[in-house]
């Protein structure tokens, strides 16, 4: 009986590992099948796979969306794998890893947010952190990173904007609208611009950092190809066609832009999410006062 259970356990494990790896393999296959072979070194946006006609404008299914769906499946697989067969008091390797991740995110949330958020906002921040970091790290596999498309990141920052507005509305619509007129009514346009600047700046920061890495890496690779053709082009036969000078420097740039910058930007996006949401919270006392006033009126 025990052996059979063990067997089932292992089968589920292998299925979850497949769930983690297969989406990435599928993404690479898709890229191999659809990318035109003649395309050399060039800076391109996300390729459009499908156009679905819609009333206002066609709905585009792009590479960025497909890749972000694939990375979502990978993250779900990773989370299920790490928490499969989790039990109190048992210290297996992956349970330790899962607990470490949860502890880190909860430490981030409890360190920077009001106590009312502690129970609910951990999963949201963890989801944003994992999605952002792994999306940017997809560039390591040669796939198009979804964060290099501004629409994907703008979607996340719109979510954050909705949460900010929801928290500001906790003391009623009147207080929210009055906030736009503070400190004096002349500040109204500035306050409206400032309100919309938050999500736009969050999206642009993340997108700009990822795309700058892509642009600089591509420029360096293209430049090295030109230099290589000028310096080593005289070599006979196929020797002249091997870009020997392209070995080395792009890898160093990749370590910075793809690994360090990706993780850094994911962390910054998560921290800004936390700070913006917790900055929009009016405070427990104000909410209590608002509820008391409402009860008095009713």
């Amino acid at each position: 009986m025990v052996k059979k259970q063990d067997h089932h356990f292992r089968v589920v494990d292998w299925l979850l590992i497949a769930m983690m790896i297969l989406p990435l393999v599928a993404g690479m296959l898709l890229q191999i099948l659809t990318k035109p072979a003649s395309e050399g070194i060039s800076i391109t946006g996300a390729r459009i796979f499908l156009e679905i006609p819609m009333p206002l404008m066609p709905l585009l299914i792009t590479e960025a969306q497909i890749n972000s769906w694939l990375i979502m499946i990978t993250i779900i697989g990773l989370a299920l794998y790490l928490t499969h067969g989790i039990r109190a008091g048992v210290q297996t390797k992956r349970q330790t890893v899962a607990e470490w991740m949860v502890e880190k995110v909860e430490g981030l949330v409890t360190g920077n947010m009001d106590p009312v958020f502690h129970a609910t906002y951990g999963p949201f921040v963890a989801a944003i952190l994992a999605l952002s970091a792994l999306s940017s790290l997809m560039a390591m596999l040669g796939l198009f990173p979804p964060t290099a498309d501004v629409n994907v990141v703008a979607g996340w920052s719109i979510l954050v904007f909705i949460l900010i507005t929801k928290n500001k509305l906790k003391t009623g619509l009147g207080a929210y609208l009055k906030g736009y007129l503070s400190p004096i009514f002349i500040m109204l346009p500035m306050n409206i611009i400032g309100e919309f600047a938050t999500p736009i700046s969050m999206a642009m920061r993340h997108y700009g950092n990822v795309i700058s890495g892509t642009v600089i890496s591509t420029l360096v690779a293209a430049g090295l190809t030109v230099v290589n053709n000028a310096v080593l082009g005289w070599l006979p036969g196929f020797l002249g066609e091997i870009p020997l000078l392209r070995v080395g420097l792009p890898a160093v740039l990749s370590v910075y832009f793809d690994i360090f910058s990706s993780c850094m930007q994911a962390f910054i996006f998560a921290i800004l999410t936390i700070l913006n949401i917790s900055g929009a919270y009016p405070g427990t006392d104000e909410i209590e006062a608002f509820k008391a006033r409402k009860q008095k009126a009713a």
Partner: peptide
Amino acid sequence: VMGCAIAETTGIYSLVIAILLIF
């Protein structure tokens, strides 16, 4: 490092504008 990343924002904006201007 956190503060540097936020101070970088305006530079990133000009990068985005430059990319838009080119492409």
